[in-house]
């Protein structure tokens, strides 16, 4: 049997998570290089429409794995559905997006099959018949090329933004969809989830901001937030922060940018005292221009910055506010 890549796309409450397009783009690139067959699967209850949506992309086949016990999502349910399916199909490689949902069940799925998962990969390398995945380590300060040991199936997840979802290739004709009705036994699903909700009405929509001034741990104290606030005001932008700042209550949670906060793509992202941890970077790397001020020349934020200022933000920001005022006033 030919080697197969299986992409498990993500659906939540019956809607396709768009990050799945990125995973398919990555899988298509690997399939082109390796010559492996590419298939996709969607897991849920009455998710046939999503299977059809996926079938429009350049894949050989789409599986619609159905059971009433798969809605709402639970890790027990998804593993009970995918484990026998993967055991039977024996794909060489199983790819998924590195979302909160996948983080919740994929390690369990791989372990249940006595296999390993390379999580949060940002790319891959295929050299001399060896497939390796690149992942970030030490909060993005280093990268590592990681290979699988032992027998397939191999599992890997791709970080948000690792591939371009808008570059997904479409097929000449729709791929065949096979519906597989699964039998998830009673008592397998132990968690009882309630409907998702938002804590408070989000007062700020950072996704619409053209300019964002964001602060990280380098701001040191709550009272220093005021300085960044002033800069945001003179620039006509919004203030935002990395997670630790919001955890400390220095800025409200709806100002948080990153995997647990908002994902933004402003014209200008001015990062003040932000080290550039992965969880933050995934929320802002789409900004058109990133200016970073950090006193640590090794800070990972400089890897993605267009303009780097290695220095103390408390020295740089006050004259910057004055210069902006002068220029705008002129």
């Amino acid at each position: 049997m030919a080697d197969t890549i299986l992409v498990v796309v993500e659906q939540r409450e019956g809607k396709l998570n768009r990050v799945s397009w990125e995973t398919i783009t990555g899988a298509q690139a690997i399939a082109a290089e390796t010559g492996w067959t590419l298939e996709a699967a969607v897991v849920g209850s009455s998710v046939g429409d999503i299977a059809k949506e996926i079938a429009a992309t350049k894949v050989s086949k789409v599986y619609d794995l159905e059971s009433a016990k798969l809605e709402p999502y639970t890790p027990d349910g998804f593993v009970a559905a995918l484990k026998p399916f993967i055991e039977q199909k024996q794909p060489k490689l199983v790819l998924m997006p590195h979302t909160y949902q996948v983080r919740d069940f994929a390690p369990k799925l791989a372990a249940a099959l006595n296999r390993t998962l390379i999580s949060d990969a940002v790319g891959y390398k295929y050299e001399g018949g060896n497939l390796r995945f690149t992942r970030q380590m030490f909060q993005g300060k280093f990268a590592a090329d990681v290979s699988f040991v032992g027998d397939p199936p191999y599992f890997a997840t791709f970080q948000n933004g690792a591939f371009r979802g808008d570059q997904v290739a479409h097929g000449d004709a729709a791929a065949p969809v096979e519906t597989v009705n699964l039998d998830v036994a009673d008592g397998v699903v132990r968690n009882k989830p309630e409907a998702p909700f938002k804590e408070a009405k989000q007062a700020v929509d950072l996704t619409q901001a053209a300019i964002i001034v964001a602060v990280g741990r380098g701001i040191k104290e709550q009272k220093n937030i005021e300085l960044a606030q002033q800069l945001a005001e003179v620039l006509g932008g919004e203030i935002a922060a990395s997670r630790p700042i919001c955890d400390s209550g220095w800025l409200p949670m709806d100002r948080q940018v990153g995997s647990s906060g908002q994902t933004v793509a402003p014209k200008l992202y001015l990062a003040l005292g932000i080290s550039g941890a992965i969880q933050h970077v995934v929320g802002m790397k789409g900004a058109r221009t990133i200016i970073a001020v950090n006193k640590d020349a090794e800070a990972p934020i400089f890897e993605i910055a267009d303009v780097a200022v290695v220095g103390n933000l408390f020295d740089i920001v006050p004259p910057l506010i004055e210069e902006v005022k002068k220029t705008k006033g002129a």
Partner: peptide, 27 residues
């Protein structure tokens, strides 16, 4: 079941311009 083949400083994908000098000049 997984092995780190190589650890390295990430290759830059962006060209970064570094601004230097006294704070007033940088501003």
């Amino acid at each position: 079941l997984q092995r780190i083949e190589k650890l390295y400083i990430p290759q830059k994908t962006k060209k970064t311009e570094v601004l230097q000098g006294p704070p007033g000049e940088i501003a």
